[in-house]
Computed example of a mutant assay.
Amino acid sequence: MKLQLWRNATLLLNIDGISILVDPMLGEKGSMGKMPMTESKLLNPLVDLPFNKEELSNRLKEIDAVAVTHLHPDHWDSEAVRLLDKNIPIICSDVISDHIAAQGFTNIIAVNNKIQWKNITISTTKGQHGTGEIGEKMGTVNGFVLKKDNQSVYIAGDTIWYDEIAGEIDKHQPQHIIVAGGAATFSVGDPIIMTSEDIVKVCEYAPESTVWVTHLEALSHCREDRKFIQKKILENGLAERCFILDDGEEVSLKYL
């Protein structure tokens, strides 16, 4: 398995030669505008993709499928809808499959619990995108566990740490866990994705897993940057198995 972070939560996962693009946010810097329910006047996303439009076009032609955890525009934006081939397989939960079909996509693989696709076992996982009223407004989110032979990766998606994440780790025993860090927070309420403390809890709960941190420095409501989270990783003695990905960085997800 190989993993490349494009930006924010947009990942390219290569499993035995099969390329899956996860949560595509493909618009230019600033194309999403201001973040609602915040006082920030910054335009999102805060950074461009780590390659130009021509290279993006070439990369999209090489993708075998797209996986979408939920429909918030930093995971599935209008530019992704415009640029992606409408016949490309779209892997998503059955909760959002009708919405994506209404956008013109014709090859939707709706997952209720678990499917087998090209010898890859794909399971949906639960998530909680915040707490209280804000968490309810953020709606249903999910993650994915992908397994091929004896290798496995758990993409947690936009979620805080809570009991169900521990349950998913117990159930799937993933070798690699990809989490959304940054402690994104609106003007009211608690963080809607993982804080550095949450990331430490993931590492402590899954001592045999490698943890990869994404969702950083691309959106204006994220309160924790790479430098801050790296400091927490070092303070907790986790530097050998918890890593922060840079935009454009590609890594091998080694068999553990």
Rank of each mutant, 00 (worst) to 15 (best):
E217Q: 11
T159F: 02
H70S: 10
L56W: 07
D94Q: 13
I100F: 02
E208D: 13
S187D: 10
I169K: 09
E204H: 02
V66R: 03
K201W: 13
K61Q: 09
N58I: 13
L26N: 01
K86T: 02
I109G: 00
F105S: 05
E208R: 02
F228M: 11
H99E: 14
L26F: 05
K61N: 10
A101I: 00
I134N: 03
I160G: 00
Y255E: 15
T69R: 10
K201Q: 10
R59F: 05
S209Q: 09
V251Q: 10
Q230D: 11
E224Q: 11
D64S: 12
G157F: 04
W6Y: 13
Q151H: 14
L84I: 01
I63P: 14
L253A: 06
Q175P: 14
S220T: 10
H75D: 09
C242T: 05
A206H: 01
E164W: 09
N14G: 06
E62D: 09
E197Y: 12
R223A: 14
L234F: 06
V68Y: 03
I15V: 15
C222P: 09
Q175Y: 10
E208V: 01
L49I: 08
G33D: 00
F243I: 14
R241E: 02
V211I: 15
K171C: 06
A110N: 00
M37I: 14
T140E: 13
L12F: 05
R59H: 08
E133I: 13
G17D: 07
E79Q: 07
I233D: 00
G189D: 03
E55W: 02
Q116M: 14
K148I: 10
I20Q: 03
L26Y: 00
D74I: 14
K231D: 14
A80R: 05
V111R: 00
W76Y: 07
V145R: 02
T121V: 10
K86R: 08
S123E: 13
G132H: 07
K227Q: 13
W117V: 07
G33Y: 11
E250P: 13
D77I: 09
I233C: 02
L84M: 01
E62T: 10
S78C: 03
M35L: 13
A166S: 06
L245D: 03
E79V: 05
G127W: 04
V153F: 01
K227P: 10
H75Y: 06
N113R: 14
I244K: 06
L216R: 09
D23N: 15
L71S: 00
P36G: 14
L5C: 01
S19M: 05
M138K: 05
S40P: 07
K254V: 15
K201Y: 08
E136T: 09
Q230W: 05
V200I: 12
L146R: 01
I96F: 12
S57N: 10
N112W: 02
E62K: 12
K231T: 12
W212D: 04
